[in-house]
Design a protein around this nucleic acid. Structure first.
Length: 455
RNA sequence: GCCGCGAUCGUCUAGGGGACUAGGACCCCGGAUUCUCAGUCCGGAAACCGGGGUUCGAAUCCCCGUAGCGGUACCA
């Protein structure tokens, strides 16, 4: 990718304002390419569709982009602000005869094809009616070739394309015309976008040629699918960046995972900080086949990133996610949970017992609170009661002789304690958990469990 | 229908004519971690879509087929 290449990024705001994962990956690839080549990023929010492109939707998408850590230098560019340029380009095409007014309806086109054969693109007859839609003349012979950075040359026979509509009867222009004009006039040299645009590219090339402009370089990314092989959508769980954020994923992990969806390193490196992604990523190395979004791998990757954070950063991230203050208490809780949690949201499951009463998990209780439990809890209570210092070492020293003494396996002693103080059968290390909870609260929860066992 | 795109373990991928007995990662399974596991470590199972070519030799190049995906709007 050449120096200082403006790389175009377009977004059609979804009706819900969600930044979809496929769009996020496209944005990331653009961003990485721009960073790598020292280029400029042009973010453009499509807004010819007024119903979908509310200010709120646009703001939500920009917010998600910011969370993901993708900054842009220019944008968003509104369609309305370009209307004058579009009208001017349209008039030039009309004047030169490259485009013409045609009043044919969809039914007329269908009838024309029934007559001329399905493989032939529609060719209309110019009419003297300024209120009719405008179509671009497409040659009958030859082919239009898309030089794609990822796929090489892709050839499309001109004959199979309709004289497509570039402006409606009311004069407003259509997407394939608008973007071609904008790419040319705004100096866009690199267009990195989804595969679903590949078949539309010849239309844009035709517009560019009719206008006498050089086309930009194109790279069409493979699409992203859900686990069922269909286009990724809300049905597949987290389908938007906003949902990923709520689920407690780290931006750096999401960037790493998304980068790997369609691209891989030749030395099998999987876990990469963003800086490494920037130097290693090349658009031309992107794969050619569709990928399926698999949240399980993202979870694993996220856990890796979480474990590598400093306790300060970790606590800050958890605090932000939970909407709590990053105080000493939270910091201590994070210290014992960091090696286990895979998501920010998962941290809470491990530490909530430090902030709230034990959760009620009947399955865990029934599984653990059996025959030997009362004896174990009583012994633990007695051992803990006399402790003057209550740190993990002291707690361990006090508890570790118990299994031998009462003739039970270690698990039969520790699991009842775990369930007594947390309510669940999974938690951070038992000694650390007790120490973090403190002596009084630990003792009173053990008492409460004992009382319940006896009733 | 027409035009186009790709096809390697369940998933993400490495692979560019011999280094392939096809490598890595997730998931899954087994073991370990004289406390849990959703953490960590070790081990295991698991793939070249099918058929023809080209070649001494094909996962790799070519053709056909197959199922899949995308486009085909006075949508973006």
């Amino acid at each position: 990718m050449s120096e200082d290449s403006p790389i175009r990024l377009r977004f059609a705001p979804s009706p819900t304002g969600a930044l979809h994962i496929g769009g996020a990956r496209t944005a990331l690839y653009n961003w990485l390419a721009a960073r790598h080549g020292g280029g400029e990023l042009v973010l453009r929010i499509e807004d010819t569709d007024r119903e979908r492109s509310t200010e709120k939707n646009v703001a939500q998408i920009l917010d998600a982009m910011e969370w993901l850590g993708l900054d842009w230098d220019v944008g968003p560019v509104s369609q309305a602000s370009r209307a004058g340029h579009h009208a001017e380009a349209l008039q030039r095409l009309l004047d030169s005869g490259a485009a013409y007014h045609d009043s044919a309806t969809a039914k007329d086109v269908e009838a024309w094809k029934a007559e001329h054969g399905a493989g032939r693109g529609y060719r209309g007859e110019p009419v003297e009616d300024a209120g009719a839609a405008v179509r671009l003349r497409v040659p009958d012979e030859g082919e239009t070739v898309v030089q794609d950075l990822i796929r090489g040359p892709v050839r499309f026979p001109n004959r199979s394309y309709d004289d497509f509509v570039i402006a409606r009867g009311d004069g407003s222009v259509l997407y394939n015309f608008a973007v071609a004009v904008d790419d040319a006039e705004m100096g866009i040299t690199e267009v990195v976008r989804g595969d679903d645009h590949l078949s539309n590219t010849p239309k844009q090339l035709l517009v560019l040629a009719a206008l006498g402009h050089e086309p930009p370089h194109y790279a069409h990314l493979p699409l992203l699918h859900g686990p069922d092989g269909k286009k990724l959508s809300k049905r597949h769980g987290a389908a938007s960046v906003q949902e990923l954020r709520e689920a407690g994923y780290l931006p750096a992990a999401v960037r790493n995972y998304l980068a790997l969806l369609g691209w891989g390193t030749d030395d099998d490196t999987t876990v990469m900080p963003t800086e490494e992604l920037v130097v290693r990523f090349r658009v031309e190395d992107v794969g050619r086949s569709a990928a399926i979004f698999d949240e399980k791998k993202l979870r694993w990757l996220n856990g890796r990133f979480m474990r590598e954070m400093s306790l300060e950063d970790y606590t800050a991230a958890v605090a932000r996610h939970l909407g709590r203050d990053p105080d000493e208490r939270l910091r201590a809780a994070c210290a014992i949970a960091q090696e286990k949690a895979q998501t920010l949201a998962g941290v809470w499951d491990l530490i909530r017992f430090l902030f709230e009463p034990p959760v009620e998990d009947e399955k865990a209780w029934d599984k653990v609170m059996k025959d030997g439990a009362p004896a174990a809890l009583e012994a633990a209570h007695a051992a803990l009661e006399g402790l003057s210092t209550f740190d993990p070492q002291a707690v361990e020293a006090a508890l570790s002789p118990i299994p031998d003494r009462i003739g039970a396996k270690p698990g039969k002693v520790y699991q009842p304690i775990r369930v007594a103080i947390t309510g669940t059968s999974v938690s951070p290390g038992i000694f650390e958990s007790l120490a973090a909870l403190g002596r009084e609260e630990s003792l009173s929860r053990i008492d409460a469990a004992l009382a319940r066992l006896r009733s």
